[in-house]
Design a binder for these strands. Sequence first.
DNA 1: CTGAAAGCGCTAACAT
DNA 2: ATGTTAGCGCTTTCAG
Lengths: 349, 349
Amino acid sequence: MTRANIAEVALVAGVSKSTVSRVLNERTEYMRDETRQRVLDAVATLGYRPSAVARSLVSKRTQAVGLLISDVGNPYYPEVIHGVEDIALAHGYDVFLCNTNYKLERGMAFVQSLADKQVDGVLVMTSRMSDDLLAGLAERGLPVVLIDWELPAAQGVVGTLAIDFETGIREAVDHLVGLGHRRFAHVAGPLNLRTSRTRRDLFLAALAGRGIAPEQVLVLEGDLRIQGGRHAVPALLAGPEPPTAVFAANDLMALGVIWGARELGARLPEDLSVVGLDDIQLAAEVSPPLTTVALPRHEIGSRAMRMLLDLLPLSAKPQAVPIFQEVIGTQLVVRGSTGRPKAHPGEGR
Amino acid sequence: MTRANIAEVALVAGVSKSTVSRVLNERTEYMRDETRQRVLDAVATLGYRPSAVARSLVSKRTQAVGLLISDVGNPYYPEVIHGVEDIALAHGYDVFLCNTNYKLERGMAFVQSLADKQVDGVLVMTSRMSDDLLAGLAERGLPVVLIDWELPAAQGVVGTLAIDFETGIREAVDHLVGLGHRRFAHVAGPLNLRTSRTRRDLFLAALAGRGIAPEQVLVLEGDLRIQGGRHAVPALLAGPEPPTAVFAANDLMALGVIWGARELGARLPEDLSVVGLDDIQLAAEVSPPLTTVALPRHEIGSRAMRMLLDLLPLSAKPQAVPIFQEVIGTQLVVRGSTGRPKAHPGEGR
DNA sequence: CTGAAAGCGCTAACAT
DNA sequence: ATGTTAGCGCTTTCAG
């Protein structure tokens, strides 16, 4: 049974294609009720559904958007994706999921394909991003929303959703200092990523604000995965005066630190307090539950998608579009992985 | 800068649209090299890219497939998605991600939308599925591949990828019995799901094969999430002769059991051996690492997508298409969460 | 070897 | 109030 088209509906209803089209698009203002009904009946009996492809050809819109992410496997993303999908779906948009696997060239290929398919807009949430790629999008006049990424020089219809890590990280530092910690470490993400450097710098700055100099802070580098946290543990626990508190650039590494430290006999949080960042699902479910700087991930997704929807009507206009910019907050969630430091043997008073 | 179209390319190259089309589609057999080159040059200077939408309108194919899953947040999916994407991408297909959120009606809406957008095929990996939904797909003549789902009565171009849980589960039972366990429990998934019942039945059957009657096995029900495992722990540990080994229907619940049991003071695996199912990433990274029945998730995704690609050319033909069926194996991965049971106080000898 | 023309399924002027 | 006509950007006969 092949799909009926608009002509067949018109035939069955005894009207012209235009009339059918009008009914379908609710331009039914100057129409006799009876005509409308005949069309509706024909549509029903034929099980007619308009072809989205044909519609797109004339309307230039596809009711689809692209979502560029680095890796579905990263537990940071699922909730963001849900946020995007919830809004998209509610507005009749479908989402092309594009996993770049942290590879720039794969991202480029996706952008190409998305542009060819004429998606109405693109959400970019990859941690690595080339300005060329973004420029490519802008040149094609595709509306883009960038999450946690600085504005590229490129022109175009673009919005940015910045994440205010500072507040949450400062809260974390205040919390730890308030508990009595004085010796700190940071397990950073790959420092070639801008976002890793930002987190490190904000952490060090917040500590400096509490009178702890950056030189006193042990900074290690990890891969943002559990293993990265585990690998950091020996270096963390070495030395005569090891840190009593560690801030990891994300929750996965924080978990790695916790598990790794425990395997080496450390007790938590007495021997080591650990703070993560993300507030992934797992954070609340492990034991001890993880104290972490929470990103409102669902909201990040939904706000980004909403912003994109706002941008769409503007894609027609040439350049002079004001850049959309929003900032989204973060905040510390205190759970069981942080506590007062045990008085160190060497510093009893 | 508005996208150039084929007419402009033809103009610049000084040829007809047909010729441009021929070059683009590599029907270049009877063509003078010089003509071809002129077209290529024009394409390059204009930065021309053919409109996928227009192509789809005539070709009836969109180079896109739909992927129905229950929830991106479930750690079972990411690797499956990767498997699908790797193959899809390599063949020039894009993937519409459709998260049903375990809701049937959302699945129906997606199917509708996918059909309207004329995707070339659909992969169904949701744990709940209505036969109506599948019938809907089949009626629309859309090729479908079903993962771990029995064949519906409906006709159509359909393939199924079954998962042979039996082998892996039997291996798990053999492993546990071999270690000396005699008292077992199972934390099942929601028993209204077919797949939950299957796992339970296979577990009980395998135990029966080793001389342990189903009545002796404590069966609890969970929600397939970490909390589900945690909640089961009190019931698990109660009674004078608690089980020494538990098989959870998935890894998340297994982790919940482990963590919950540990919080109640149990030692693992001495007091309790735990086996999961899935082999999610996390399974190898927690401590103790989880012994689990591994599903080859990447392979599940890639095999399913390959099967769908095989099905596509057949979508033209009416019915008499042989049903594609494949089975994919599972196997036990032994890690640290299982061990010999400690002699029980009450049964010292 | 290449061009002209028709048509995919729909919407949007422009009639009437 | 509804029908007619002309595309949207491409592929594909069918002619040359």
